[in-house]
Design a protein around this nucleic acid. Structure first.
Lengths: 187, 187
DNA sequence: GCACGAGCGCAGCGATCGCTGCGTTAGCTG
DNA sequence: CAGCTAACGCAGCGATCGCTGCGCTCGTGC
């Protein structure tokens, strides 16, 4: 399932109210996740917070799970620009620092955990597909420069893995300095 | 919050019916998680599957979140015996292989994801506290042998991190051979 | 500027959830 | 073996959830 395969209505009218409603609902989900548990995250509550009728949410997203996936895709895509510092190390350090900073935000990690819990098709890859694409782009650039970068899997395992692991399972999210040491280890 | 701070009733009578009910409910949760989504995991459904009345589940656990945490603690504690092969590398390789095998089970990863989503106090450390304790024990034994093992955090980041990351966010859980390469990297 | 149609608000409906007294059963204790 | 108490089963109750026709509003294209 590609991130752009959103079959939901509203795409045929991207200019006006639909976009406003979508933004309001997404914002409501993030706010509620930041201040409450996912068990209290029900569609009537979301709709009420967004100033939108429950019917709209039911029709456009169907369930809390799909809504969460949509919010996660929207949140984890496009927020980070792919760094281009000239060297692979510089790119990766900048990128890892950005990811670490993003994951250190409690609201972001709460959204991630909720998405993980609500994902029905096995793992919650919606949280990482975009990051993986950015990583592949940086590594491909290094190859074009004539370097021999590590594989995507290696960087994913030793940089993204620890970062996401800490944000998901431990109480201490990684700080930027630690993220840079991860890059050093993998190079 | 220690894993043994279960304030729930039933501990004063560990020999008979309470233990049976607890086992039946835990089993029901694992079964339902394996065959359905977490959104369908409601207390009446769990109680019905376990052959127990809903009242009992409400009284002993209170909510699906606490019940999931209890199941996770029970599942992720004591299942793995700490290896003792004589060398740190042997211990870690055995241990990482066991963890990888465990996480490769779809039912286990489903339970983990559900626990992550239902955890209210931030991260879902119930999934890793016991693993961390086992790791600390192995590293302490190496210190007693006179060796200089890496820190718990290092092994956690570069072995547990990738393993849990893959099980949580990607479609390819780690196989035992790959788990051993992780150990090699950290030593 | 005007007609068309997509998307939203409104009202309400079964179904089910989460929870609470009360009586009964079953495991611990002397 | 007998008494006690913790834990469970039972029935039922508000509350709320998820969902469905219907009419209306607002963005889009001619």
């Amino acid at each position: 399932m590609s991130p752009t395969s959103q079959k939901a209505p509203g795409d045929a009218r991207p200019g006006g109210r639909s976009a406003r409603v979508r933004a309001a609902v997404h914002r409501a989900v993030e706010e509620l996740l930041a201040e409450s548990t996912v068990e209290a995250l029900t569609i009537p509550v979301i709709a009420d917070r967004a100033g939108v009728h429950s019917t709209t949410v039911y029709r456009r997203w169907g369930s809390v799970g799909e809504l969460l996936a949509a919010v996660a895709i929207n949140r984890f895509s496009g927020d980070l620009v792919v760094p281009d510092t000239g060297t692979l190390r510089g790119d990766l350090e900048q990128w890892a620092t950005d990811v670490a900073t993003d994951l250190a935000d409690p609201d972001v990690s709460a959204l991630m955990r909720a998405t993980v819990g609500a994902s029905k098709n096995g793992p919650a890859d919606v949280c990482v597909v975009d990051r993986r694409a950015q990583l592949a782009a940086m590594l491909a650039r290094e190859t074009e420069r004539g370097g021999r970068p590590p594989s995507v899997e290696q960087v994913e395992d030793f940089v993204l893995g620890p970062l996401y692991y800490r944000a998901t399972y431990t109480a201490q999210p990684g700080d930027p300095a630690w993220a840079r040491t991860l890059v050093t280890h993998v190079l």
